[in-house]
Amino acid sequence: MTAPRLRTAIWNEEAASGDPFTAESCYCHGYDVFGEILEKASYPEYLYLLFRGEKPAPATARALEILAVALANPGPRDPSVHAAMAAGVGGSPAAAVLMAALASGAGVSGGAREIFRSMELWQTCGCSLAAWQQALHPSTEKSAGQRRSVWPENEHPPGFAAYSPQFALPVRQTLAALSRVLSADKLAWLHSQREALEQLADSPLAMTGVAAAALTDLGFSPADGEMLALLLRLPGAAAHALEQGRNGIRHFPFFTIDIPNDPGPQTGDSYGER
């Protein structure tokens, strides 16, 4: 019998003597994780190494750290955090809380798939306003015949606000902070061309757009960026869910409902009418 082998360029292990299932040394892209990285690298540096396979330049690690702080908590009104709280307040397992946050933070409207699609736009359009003009207003002919996806269609241009009428201050502050440490092309261009892009999109730049530009400049693919966006937004969801769990269900909003086709109290049984 041939033992299954797991091919990876990320991780290697040396087994402890006499125990083939316990690692004595672990290496991430060639660096000793517990012998060296543990005390020498920051968390953003290690995160970058895991995804990109290289030790980041100091400015790169700092930019990733700024992005991680910016994304860590979208606040309790955000659908992903709201979903996490809805799970946490009922006492669901911690993993269910994070699964709720991931599912509701994964979408094409404000979620990680929006960042994925915005990163695709950055890859396609780069720093060309003409290319952005074309991409933000695609012809219907181009999308006809494309394989149907499980993801819904965009209802607003990826990277731009769905409803907000103005460039929000936290988004402005994040863009400025990232631009100060990262002199690479997309962010700098976004900083200078923001208003022109907003005119093309007919809506203000959103946090998803800033994150997408930064992640692209940091060298991440759209798939990497989507995954990182999901990961980086979990701390706020977790903290808010734990808090609501402690507060209890009576202090958590339940909302009222209006059912226009409510049949009202019934007495008969008519199942089977088709």
């Binding site: 299954p4 990876t8 990320i10 991780w11 299932f21 396979g53």
Partner: peptide, 17 residues
Amino acid sequence: PLRCSAIDYVGPDRRFW
């Protein structure tokens, strides 16, 4: 279960931070 030796490592050689 997988043994440590089941990892087929194809990344960079040992290097130092």
